[in-house]
């Protein structure tokens, strides 16, 4: 079983990826399915006891799984290349517009240098590309101690927090 980063810890991945068929699946197995399989096997997956995740390709937006998010434990967003930033918008929409609270995992061309932006867009799990050290990659989450914009990690943009600091310095409780 593969390892990945989840909530800043290195953990084993318990999920199995199923794209074509659910045949042979164990009831308690954690499974990741494609949006197509999710749509086709809705009734069967409703009865499934293990955890349920869905796999979005780089080009697939959150709209196609919006109706199913309540019953999903995991959404995987695949990055065909780290320079294709569509998944960053997908993640923010999942978190901020659709209110998805489960595991949001970046997979594909994911490595240390990409973690900072991904994490701020709402990913809390990272399945690195082959050959990358998980321990080394963890450092990518702490390259910057501050950020200007509003993000999933920190809703309040720096300019609002700066004002709060000024206010609290002026009126120390």
């Amino acid at each position: 079983m593969l390892e990945l980063i989840r909530d800043r810890a290195i953990v084993r991945d318990t999920y199995h990826l199923r794209t074509d068929t659910l045949d042979g699946i164990l009831p308690e197995e954690d499974v990741i399915v494609s949006p197509a399989l999710l749509a086709a096997e809705r009734a069967r997956l409703d009865q499934h006891q293990g955890k349920l995740g869905v796999w979005l390709e780089t080009s697939e937006g959150p709209e196609i799984i919006a109706a199913d998010l309540a019953r999903l434990d995991l959404v995987v967003v695949h990055f065909s290349s780290f320079t294709d930033g569509r998944g960053h918008s997908t993640a923010r929409l999942l978190r901020e517009r659709y209110g998805f609270r489960g595991e949001l995992r970046a997979a594909g061309d994911v490595f240390k240098e990409t973690l900072h932006y991904l994490s701020r867009c709402g990913f809390n799990a990272f399945a690195l590309r082959p050959g990358e050290s998980l321990t080394h990659a963890l450092g990518g989450l702490d390259v910057f101690s501050e950020a200007y914009q509003t993000s999933v990690e920190r809703q309040s943009p720096l300019f609002r927090r700066r004002l709060q600091n000024v206010a609290s310095e002026e009126n120390p409780l």
Binding site: F82, G85, H116, L118, C121, F144, Q149, L158
Partner: peptide
């Protein structure tokens, strides 16, 4: 400038 500097969503347009 501040908004665009390391904007997490728009680094890979």
């Amino acid at each position: 400038r501040q908004w665009s500097t390391f904007h997490p969503e728009f680094a890979f347009l």
